[in-house]
């Protein structure tokens, strides 16, 4: 039996009076890829941003209910510590434009003022870039600015930056929506490799992507969690009518 790493119970999120995530209860097992899919505006990104407490940074945004990392309530922990343990990759690649590739990878340490030995730093940079399948492409240009890379490379750099902090969970908010098909394929392949060491939560509006890479899929519709099941099960034998309509393309 796999152990649960993140669990939410009756979780709600609001923007002011706008109720965007409604009573969501999910248990996310360790070392899995969980896809969160649904049409635009269904609250999937908001739910994701609630997991590492990025949601509350928006003025007027509030949450309610229980969200746990292992046994600890995320909303009683220090948000900084939460974000160190739960990394995030955004929709658009956002490497720090003023830093080199090398410094981007260790940005979490460097900008936080955590001191590292030179050898240790080199190790983290090489290890993270290897895990992000970017090492071979950038090993000779580590001291160039990260923004000189292509979009797909930048996104992998952002993944390297997130995993350099050794988080337990990695949240990915439509990480391939700004990328071309080839970069998308390489990022997807990478997600598969990362599963060994991390738990991944992947928001996507692309059903094929959810079907390709995930172990379990959650389907959100209008802020509600409609269905949550093994991906295979969900795509071959959906329990709910709305899921059925969505995966057969009756609404998007």
């Amino acid at each position: 039996m796999e152990s649960t790493i993140i669990s939410s119970k009756n979780f709600n999120a609001y923007f002011g009076a706008n109720h965007v995530v409604k009573n969501v209860s999910i248990e996310i097992p360790q070392n899995n890829i969980i896809a969160v899919m649904g049409p635009s505006g269904c609250g999937k990104t908001t739910y994701l941003r609630c997991i590492n407490r990025m949601h509350e940074l928006i003025p007027g945004a509030t949450t309610e209910g229980e969200m746990k990392l292992h046994k600890d309530n995320i909303y009683e922990m220090n948000p900084i510590l939460v974000r160190l343990r739960i990394g995030m990759v955004f929709q658009r690649p956002n490497p720090f434009p003023n830093l080199s590739i090398y410094d981007n990878v260790i940005a979490g340490y460097k900008l936080n003022g955590m001191k590292l030995q030179r050898a240790e730093r080199d190790n983290i940079v090489e290890g993270s870039l290897r895990k992000a399948a970017l090492w071979n492409e950038v090993k000779d240009t580590l001291h160039k600015k990260g923004t000189f890379l292509s979009g797909g490379q930048q996104q992998r750099l952002c993944i390297a930056r997130a995993i350099a902090m050794e988080p337990e969970v990695l949240l990915l908010d439509e990480p391939t929506s700004a990328l071309d098909p080839i970069s998308t394929a390489s990022v997807e392949e990478l997600l598969f490799d990362l599963k060994k060491n991390y738990t991944l939560v992947l928001v996507t509006h692309n059903m094929q992507q959810a079907a390709r890479v995930s172990d379990k899929t959650a389907f959100f519709y209008l802020g509600e969690l409609v269905e949550y099941d093994k991906t295979k099960e969900m795509f071959t034998n959906p329990k709910d009518n709305r899921t059925q309509s969505y995966i057969t393309g009756r609404f998007s």
Binding site: R83, L111, N112
Partner: peptide
Amino acid sequence: PSSLKEAGLALGLP
């Protein structure tokens, strides 16, 4: 862009 700030915050920077 605000994505820059978010990148920092998501890395656990105060």
